[in-house]
């Protein structure tokens, strides 16, 4: 009997690998090999390309700017997504549906269209500046587009769903018995939130922050459209290098960006393991 199941199990597992194989090969050919080729290309002149990048003040500024924009975007996303996700879990089913639909909107309206809308809103002759002057609030146009502010507004708009969704899921799983117990023991609303609700929502906060941070690092369209050349991010620099100079330095930039992404993900995994161990205890 036991032998029968193992043979059947092995046969089923063999068939499983067979079905998995085509996608795996495809994945190797068009995902792993390209990454390997990029690494090889970046090392074409040995480590000189990397040395050049690390020594150049221009590239250094782009890297610092990228990390900085990613950090601010993540912080703003968290600050506005947290109350939003909290409300989603506290309202009736119809309202909940509406709020979730609003968050999912980015998945059916193209990123380009939304970026164009922001240009029309924020540029010097755009809607916001027209009304600011019409109502006499300002004399001339206020610089909104081609500024770090423009980039931030656009990026938070695109990345907000990636913060709201994990927060919403985690908050939905919080056991309200624990909050009631805290209330029963005399905790004030603020104490209940800080000591009970916030720690329980921490996995969602971590997941959302890492997701938004990692996705921000590689952003191209939004900063290129709404930012100034002085606020350039790595993604845009990489494309410019490829188009104007060639693939070697761009590949090195790609490897550095990849390293940043993987390090962020590794940190997530580490935090995850620690928090999992803590809940077990």
């Amino acid at each position: 009997m036991t032998q029968g199941t193992t043979i059947a199990g092995r046969r089923s597992s063999q068939r499983g690998w067979l079905l998995f194989l085509p996608a795996f090969l495809f994945f190797c050919a068009f995902f792993l090999i390209p990454l390997a080729l990029m690494l090889q290309e970046s090392l074409k002149n040995g480590f000189d390309t990397y040395a050049f990048i690390f020594e150049s003040p221009v590239y250094g500024r782009v890297f610092r700017n990228t990390v900085w924009v990613a950090v601010i975007t993540t912080a703003v996303c968290l600050a506005i997504a947290y109350p939003y996700a909290y409300t989603v879990n506290r309202v009736g089913p119809r309202m909940k549906m509406l709020l979730i639909l609003l968050v999912l909107m980015p998945f059916w309206v193209s990123l380009l269209s939304r970026t164009f809308a922001w240009v029309g809103l924020l540029q010097d002759t755009g809607i916001i500046n027209t009304y600011l002057q019409l109502w006499g609030i300002t004399d001339g146009p206020v610089a909104l587009v081609r500024t770090p502010f423009g980039v931030l507004v656009g990026m938070v708009h695109v990345l907000l769903p990636y913060m709201v969704l994990p927060l919403m899921n985690t908050m939905g799983e919080i056991d309200h018995g624990q909050l009631q117990a805290a209330r029963g023991l005399g905790a004030t609303p603020l104490q209940r939130f800080v000591r009970v609700f916030l720690p329980l929502s921490l996995p969602g906060i971590v997941a959302g922050c890492v997701l938004v941070f990692v996705l921000s690092l590689g952003f191209y369209i939004t900063p290129a459209m709404l930012g100034a050349p002085a606020n350039m991010m790595v993604g845009e620099l990489l494309i410019q290098e490829t188009q104007k100079v060639g693939a070697t330095r761009a590949s090195a930039l790609g490897i550095l960006l990849l390293a940043g992404t993987l390090i962020s993900m590794g940190l997530l995994a580490a935090v995850w393991k620690r928090s999992a161990r803590r809940t077990e205890l």
Partner: peptide, 19 residues
Amino acid sequence: SLAPLIIPPVIMGIGIYIL
């Protein structure tokens, strides 16, 4: 298998371009 969702698209782009 979810890796292509997290890896920045500029990286995928340049890799496939070289290939």
